[in-house]
Computed example of a mutant assay.
Amino acid sequence: MLVIYAPALAAALASFAVPGAVQGARAGLLCAAVAAHFLKRVLEVLLVHRYSGSMPLGTALLISSCYLFNAVAMIYVQRLSRGLPEPAVDLLYPGVLAFAVGAAGNFYHHLLLSRLRAGGGAGGDKGYKIPRGGLFELVACPHYLFEIVAFFGFAMIAQTVYALVVAVGSAAYLAGRSSATRKWYASKFEEFPASVKALVPYVW
């Protein structure tokens, strides 16, 4: 998992050292948010997550390339937008808030998942249990919900079409994963609550 996240982190940090790459509050905060996002992921790999399987190196490199490309492209497109008129509605600081809420919520629910795995237990393959606590009482994948919030935080900070496309694409992908995860829990555990939605509390 370090192979997946570390290159994007390195690229985001390196952008601060590239002359002219980061100028102005919007570009600086976007680079900082991208770096913080991947730093959090690297630290979670080292200190939080508990993995039940492995991933082929080829798959890891492919995913890593996608994260690296998106990180670099968001920062580069922000550089290309320099000199263009500022948006009529400035979403920079609401975007910083959305990113912070998304990152914090994602981290908290990752902690809950790691504690669930720590004890192992019966009731499913490899010690899986129904997650409890936080928004797990309402949705199967609150960590994905908050990750989507963080990606839309990127889009609000950047206010570029590319960052918005990344956010929408990420939301669609994570919505699909949330739906599949909920179906897995429902098939594996007879006691899985029917009221627990896939991603959005009380809605879906």
Rank of each mutant, 00 (worst) to 15 (best):
V96N: 06
A100S: 15
F107E: 02
S114Q: 08
G120A: 09
A103I: 15
G133D: 09
A122V: 14
A122G: 14
L112R: 00
R117G: 03
I148W: 05
I148R: 00
Y144V: 05
P142M: 07
G105W: 06
L135R: 04
R115P: 03
D125Y: 11
V149W: 04
V149N: 03
P142A: 08
Y108V: 10
F99Q: 07
Y128D: 12
A140V: 06
R117P: 07
F136T: 00
I148M: 07
L111F: 12
A150W: 02
A104R: 12
G105A: 11
G119Q: 13
R117H: 10
V96T: 13
L97Q: 09
A122P: 10
R132N: 09
A104P: 07
K126C: 13
N106F: 07
K129V: 10
L113E: 02
V96F: 01
L138P: 07
L116G: 04
H109S: 08
N106R: 04
V139W: 01
F136E: 00
A140C: 13
L116Y: 03
F107K: 00
A98R: 08
R117N: 06
V139S: 05
G134D: 04
V149K: 06
Y108S: 08
F146I: 02
H143Q: 15
H143G: 06
V101Q: 04
V139K: 00
